[in-house]
Computed example of a mutant assay.
Amino acid sequence: MKNGGRLQGRVAVVTGAAQGIGAQYARALAAEGASVVVSDVLDAGPVAAQINEGGGRALAVACDVTDAQAVLAMVNAAVARFGRLDILVNNAALFGTVSRKRFEDITSAEWDRMMSVNVRGAFECVKAVVPAMRERKYGKIVNIASGTVFKGQTMLLHYVTSKGAIVAMSRSLARELGDDGIRVNTLAPGLVMSENVRSNWSADKVRGTVDSRAIKREALPEDMCGTLIYLCSSESDFVTGQVLVVDGGAVMH
């Protein structure tokens, strides 16, 4: 891990970080010097152990982002362990294992579950971290949306709608939290070849996405990390309420 990295001395929480893109986010933040709370409903211990064994600082915390008390306990654990909280990456979401289907075949229960995890989960995490950030008059919140918001993806209406809500939420939060020195931005990835996507998306669907890009290759989790580090670092201190799409030029936003 870097001594004197761009996030040296900062403390970050990454939700949904036990695997896939979230795990890569956690590793990237640690590589830039941040102490990282690796949070998930799944076992985040292996990711935290990897960071610690590599010379970084990480703490695994089990947390369901739809449970307000569990989220508050996660934040308290972060502050108790590392003494402060500077960065939240709201990554936890349902996507990789979600079945693609026509909108009329999405059940009300499926819709409600998607909104509970993807939208209310992000809301609960922001509510929980803001007091610690307000104390220092500084913070970075990066909400993870999706390039599908700007394309109008078929067969995933509940997912795309939830990520549209994240964009709107981020803009409103940026207005509310600006006077507190807290920046709120949105990272919107295109289709990224995480383990779950590779397992659940057909080659034809992936190829169609790649063909829509100006840079015609598959996106990997590490492709998202340069933008994430920028949004979490002091380099973006005058940037808030913005959406950065990272998808190889499928969306030119």
Score class of each variant (00 low, 15 high):
residue 141 I to N: 00
residue 230 Y to R: 03
residue 151 K to C: 10
residue 116 S to Y: 06
residue 38 V to A: 05
residue 155 M to E: 14
residue 37 V to R: 06
residue 206 V to F: 05
residue 40 D to N: 10
residue 163 K to T: 03
residue 56 G to T: 03
residue 37 V to S: 04
residue 199 S to C: 10
residue 41 V to E: 09
residue 112 D to K: 14
residue 123 F to D: 02
residue 245 V to T: 13
residue 171 R to N: 08
residue 86 D to T: 07
residue 28 A to D: 09
residue 131 P to K: 01
residue 215 I to L: 15
residue 28 A to G: 03
residue 40 D to S: 13
residue 86 D to G: 03
residue 60 A to E: 02
residue 208 G to C: 12
residue 208 G to F: 10
residue 224 M to R: 01
residue 118 N to G: 12
residue 111 W to Q: 06
residue 173 L to Q: 06
residue 140 K to R: 15
residue 35 S to P: 08
residue 136 R to N: 09
residue 40 D to P: 10
residue 171 R to A: 12
residue 219 A to Q: 09
residue 54 G to W: 09
residue 214 A to G: 09
residue 92 A to I: 07
residue 118 N to Q: 12
residue 73 A to W: 07
residue 42 L to P: 04
residue 25 Y to M: 12
residue 24 Q to I: 05
residue 56 G to W: 00
residue 188 A to R: 02
residue 43 D to A: 12
residue 77 A to P: 08
residue 222 E to I: 10
residue 14 V to C: 04
residue 234 S to V: 11
residue 66 T to Y: 06
residue 158 H to M: 09
residue 117 V to G: 04
residue 136 R to W: 00
residue 192 V to H: 01
residue 110 E to L: 04
residue 84 R to K: 10
residue 176 E to R: 06
residue 51 I to P: 02
residue 186 T to H: 02
residue 222 E to D: 13
residue 221 P to R: 02
residue 210 V to E: 03
residue 233 S to Q: 05
residue 78 A to R: 05
residue 34 A to V: 00
residue 85 L to M: 11
residue 221 P to C: 07
residue 34 A to R: 00
residue 49 A to W: 10
residue 213 R to G: 01
residue 224 M to T: 08
residue 187 L to W: 05
residue 11 V to A: 01
residue 147 G to F: 03
residue 55 G to R: 09
residue 180 D to M: 08
residue 240 T to Q: 10
residue 237 D to I: 02
residue 250 A to R: 08
residue 16 G to L: 06
residue 66 T to I: 09
residue 189 P to C: 10
residue 181 G to E: 01
residue 210 V to P: 02
residue 136 R to A: 14
residue 59 L to I: 09
residue 222 E to A: 03
residue 37 V to P: 02
residue 139 G to N: 10
residue 102 R to S: 14
residue 229 I to H: 01
residue 9 G to I: 08
residue 56 G to Y: 04
residue 104 E to D: 15
residue 158 H to V: 07
residue 82 F to M: 11
